[in-house]
Amino acid sequence: MSQADLAGSAAGSGTGPAGGSGGGTAPDSAPGAPSGRGTVPRGGTGRRRTSGLLRSELLTTFRRWRTVALLGVLAVIPVLVGIAVKIETADGGSGGDGGGPAFISQITNNGLFLVFTSLAATLPFFLPMTVGVIAGDSVAGEANAGTLRYLLVAPAGRTRLLLVKFAGTVVFCFAATLVVAVFALVTGAVLFPLGEVTLLSGTSVSFAEGLLRALAIAAAVAVSLTGLAALGLFISTLTNSGIAAMAATVGLLLMVQIVDTIPQLHAVQPYLFPHYWLSFADLLRDPVYWDEILRNLGLQALYTAVFGSAAWARFTSRDVTA
């Protein structure tokens, strides 16, 4: 239930160009509307039934063996990192000296840092790759299976279906991030001590506040993935092959990540969607350093708007021949 509510709010706040499509209190839903038995409900009912389609979308996505496998891989990573750190420091050492993902040296002092380490380790590739798979397959996969034509003649409505697909992908972004965070937290709690959290700026906060900040970081990471989700959705509307759309999305992610590391290309880097991804670490400062976090949010909103509009323009005008 909470899952659906979360998704509902995600759909409601969508910045798609046709945000008002299913909404509006249409006066023509009165009983005397034309064409007796086939009146399409509008207003409140329509919105409730859109959440019904979203629920169906989430059930369809999360009941797939593939989705479960992707989440399974994400769940394994923090466990592996935790065990590796535990083995590495079993002789009393303080863990690696400077090497490895961010925060890895603090894990032995506080298991909560495994959450930050795992998110920092999975954010560059693993997390976005799973999002690329889900987003790339969202429309193209349905076209490939032929189910898209039946959804459209149901009629799901092209704008409505696209919004639901995007909302479903955003829910997956949150679910994937949450899986990493929760498994990291549990592993960290089992293998290492928990307690006060020393922030990057040196001050200490209570474990409860540390937990709260971990939650905020998970949210920031999930939101970081929405730009990619919109990009994948757009690519997904271009082709009838789910595999091609997934490969193209993931390939593009790798390419952009590489471009983001080439110093000679620094002029374009601030406009690349992963450029500010690791800014989530700034949530561990006191006071929080908002600059890059906000820039990240703005960039994700920009990508969502641009590629969401492109996906909408493409999907509402294309011939569905699959």
Partner: peptide
């Protein structure tokens, strides 16, 4: 169930 959920009039 999936196809029926896609129909807003259902």
């Amino acid at each position: 169930h999936r196809y029926d959920a896609a129909d807003p009039s259902a």
